[in-house]
Design a protein around this nucleic acid. Structure first.
Lengths: 342, 342
DNA sequence: GTTAGCACTCTCTTTTATTGAGTGCTAAAC
DNA sequence: GTTTAGCACTCAATAAAAGAGAGTGCTAAC
């Protein structure tokens, strides 16, 4: 499992060159471009060894070598040095964040934009599901004669709303009373608990009361029913069109469709995330369609919840750059959320 | 400018076959597939005429003919019979609308989904800019100690909100008083007028009053500053990957990037829209990137505002189907908005 | 253990033939 | 005058053949 110094150097050279050129790398090219003090023939012997060990493979007999999935894995595990963000990139990220600091969701969007711009891969930011946060506040507001707004605010300041019809004769005080009713019953409860049980109880309790209460209950239920979903921001998905290994339009279409459909996409990214950068290479991905792609990602905390952030690119990926960028972004984003939001 | 019966029949045959197969159409194929009571030689002569007149063109000498842009234009203007939605399609549209009827914006999204699914082209729905609608209602709501929500509701029920910091000691009644202040001053005014002038006046008038008022003014201004944008829903953009004429990945990327960026996209669709279906074929489009695509669109009314809806596909498009579908959708959507919303 | 040398392999590119769909033109038929 | 059969001709697309070149694996010498 452990390789000697020279083999490692050669493996690294193959990876670097292949990532850059997308072409198989030959022995001569390696001695020329990387200061190996040996001849091409020696490199050839070493490469033959590396192939036998499974770290390299040959598209056909008379071609150079390309790194195998196992080769990338070894590199990532045992040799890679993450490349940290440059000062310019840090400035850029700060600018992105500054500009869009007002709205909670905008922060994630900006981070995604930054990630895809800096890495040239598709980036994603998956927000923690809303259902874990707490009910803080419900307010019924009259908007028009016969219409009211049901407004629901969570402890992290997420706001949901929907309009309902109400009888014309109802007074603002009544609406306020109903709001208070809900607030007394639900304040501080987790949304998922409310959805699962509290709402039922409340419904029992309030049976045969006013129509508006029923409507409100229904509306709250409808609003909560969506809180299980995790919002996804994807940027730079079209970058894969630039990768020379993707020529098959039907394959591209399938991948882009996953990027388009949040529900599909979420299943592509592993659920269990740690706080450190994790990497799935090629067939390590569970998803059928992602067998030729790699995912570099990390979990991030927003208070007690956890979201996921990362990039997706071809297996022939600049892992060092991607890993460093994702890691930096994770840290800066966490800090930003802690300091500027709520 | 006017073609005799037989020439029209032949032009139509070429268009139908070419749209279906994406291959140049030969004289023999025409007599075989369409019940022309003449020989291939006759058709050849007619086709030569049509080519000379500019309605057909030949990729190379020994190929069949394909319709030129002018040919499509003639067909669309003088021969086309729009194909109305089938009963199943109408049912499907109803289902889409029923399911998503709750939220104003969802309606447009559903309509877009339907359009792209039925036509297999990319669809778009451009919403009228919010700024034309009227200020109905502003409410300051305390959420947390030191935080309040500024809530702005328009006459068509669009809701905008943002959180602001407020002094801890401020009372709910104060917030209500400030809300009332704004409401008295702004109710019924158009958002764009408020943004352009009223807000300035109000600022003068309220100078040196409480900090919260200032904050609120700033927030309202910030909210209104975005109301000039027209929201765009696009569906089925990836359908273009299926069209055989699009093989060049760089070209595809440029087109998809336009679909991704609302600001770019809006410029691709003509501004002046009537209430009937309009068609831009190939180079009739102003946009550089859309020279090989066609747009079938119509304007729709939502009260006094006007939005745009339509589909985008290759020049080799089923115009009859697209035009009929867009027209039906426009009518049904207008009716639905009128009856179910507000 | 390392390296020069060389035969060998296999893709990629270029060249050459072959095929076939489709045209345009001419002359005869209607 | 219009239509049609017939035929030579054109040109892309496909297939087959030839050539070039990058790179390997192996052998033998250092």
């Amino acid at each position: 499992m452990t390789l000697d110094r020279r083999k490692r150097k050669i493996l690294e050279s193959v990876i670097k060159d292949y990532v850059e050129t997308a072409e198989p790398v030959g022995s001569r090219a390696i001695v020329r471009r990387h200061a190996l003090n040996v001849s091409a023939a020696t490199v050839r012997n070493e490469m033959a060894d590396l192939e036998e060990m499974g770290y390299l493979e040959q598209p056909h007999t008379s071609a150079g070598r390309i790194p195998s999935q196992k080769g990338f894995r070894y590199y990532v595990d045992c040799m890679m040095q993450s490349e940290v963000l440059s000062d310019e990139e840090l400035d850029l990220l700060q600018k992105y964040l500054q500009e869009q600091a007002q709205e909670w969701q905008q922060v994630f969007y900006s981070v995604g934009q930054f990630l895809s711009q800096v890495t040239n891969y598709a980036s994603f930011v998956i927000l923690p599901p809303v259902k874990i946060s707490q009910f803080q506040y419900l307010q019924l507001l009259p908007i028009d004669s016969g219409q009211a707004l049901v407004l629901l605010v969570t402890d992290v300041g997420i706001i949901m709303h929907r309009r309902i019809d109400i009888p014309e004769d109802i007074q603002p005080e009544d609406l306020q009373a109903i709001s208070n009713l809900f607030n007394r019953a639900l304040r501080g409860r987790r949304l998922e608990d409310i959805y699962r049980s509290d709402l039922q109880l409340l419904r029992e309790e309030l049976k045969d009361r006013r129509r508006v209460i029923d409507r409100t209950l229904d509306t709250v239920e409808a609003l909560l029913s969506q809180t299980g979903e995790e919002k996804v921001f994807i940027s730079g998905a079209l970058n894969i069109l630039r990768e020379p290994e993707f020529k098959d339009l039907e394959k591209i279409r399938r991948i882009l469709m996953i990027f388009e459909e949040d529900e599909l996409f979420k299943d592509v990214i592993p659920q269990e995330v740690s706080n450190t950068v994790d990497i799935c290479i090629g067939r390590e991905n569970e998803s059928e369609e992602m067998q030729e792609m790699s995912v570099v990602f990390a979990g991030y905390h927003t208070g007690r919840e956890m979201g996921r952030v990362g990039v997706i690119g071809p297996m022939r990926m600049e892992y060092w750059k991607a890993a460093g960028t994702v890691e930096s972004v994770r840290i800066i984003m966490e800090a930003f959320l802690r300091d500027n939001m709520r």
